[in-house]
């Protein structure tokens, strides 16, 4: 279980609170939706859950233990803008295989074509780049996935496609999934449970 207990966070000492006493838990195999207006710390919470930021108070635990400080993180975050999550000076093959070598099956499911692997990031569209970001996050050691507005910038067709692949993996491998989105229809489609962040 991925568990956040009484998380509080602010970026600067004396700055405004971004998160205040937030708690949530995701079971393996569960799809939880997180909805809140912009500026309520959804992205910050996602970064804390995936170990990008340490919470100021409270704790994040994975099956009772804190997140590992080094090595592959079992909680992987997928960003809204794939072009920022990819080194612009690397070819796509190197980008894809930075963490592990994804199976041919996963690439086929995501519709990643062999010809794309030799390209530079700026030669691919946002929808194509996001497929690579998803492939990288679904490593063998991944247990939980945080999808922060993962398909907000994509067209409906690519959105439906990527979610089908992710949901399929979640079910088969019993991964936990947190879907951060403001699209109520999308959350309704994907999630068994929807939580929202209170206004501070």
């Amino acid at each position: 279980m991925l568990k956040a207990e009484q998380i509080s966070f602010r970026y600067t000492h004396n700055g405004p609170w971004i998160l205040r006493d937030v708690s949530l838990a995701i079971e393996a195999g569960e799809v939880v939706g997180l909805s809140a207006p912009s500026g309520r710390g959804k992205t910050t919470l996602g970064k804390i859950l995936a170990g990008y930021l340490p919470p100021l108070t409270g704790r994040v635990s994975l099956n009772g233990a804190p997140l590992p400080k080094s090595g592959y993180c079992p909680v992987q975050l997928i960003f809204q803008h794939p072009e920022l999550a990819i080194n612009p000076r690397w070819r796509m093959k190197r980008v894809l295989e930075e963490a592990f070598v994804p199976s041919a099956e996963l690439l086929r499911d995501l519709g990643i074509e062999a010809g794309w692997l030799n390209r530079w990031p700026h030669e691919l569209s946002g929808g194509e780049l996001q497929r690579f970001a998803v492939a990288r996050a679904l490593g063998p050691a991944t247990r939980y996935v945080i999808a922060d507005e993962m398909t907000t910038m994509l067209d409906a067709n690519t959105q439906a496609h990527i979610w089908q692949v992710v949901l399929d993996h979640v079910r088969r491998r019993k991964l936990g999934l947190l879907v951060v989105s403001h699209d109520a229809a999308l959350l309704g489609r994907l999630c068994t449970q929807i939580i929202s962040l209170p206004h501070l």
Partner: peptide, 22 residues
Amino acid sequence: TADYVQLSARFGHSKMWIARHH
């Protein structure tokens, strides 16, 4: 603070590796 550098650390790469490759 770039997303792709922080992500690299979450993939388990060390600081030295990130400095050398990114």
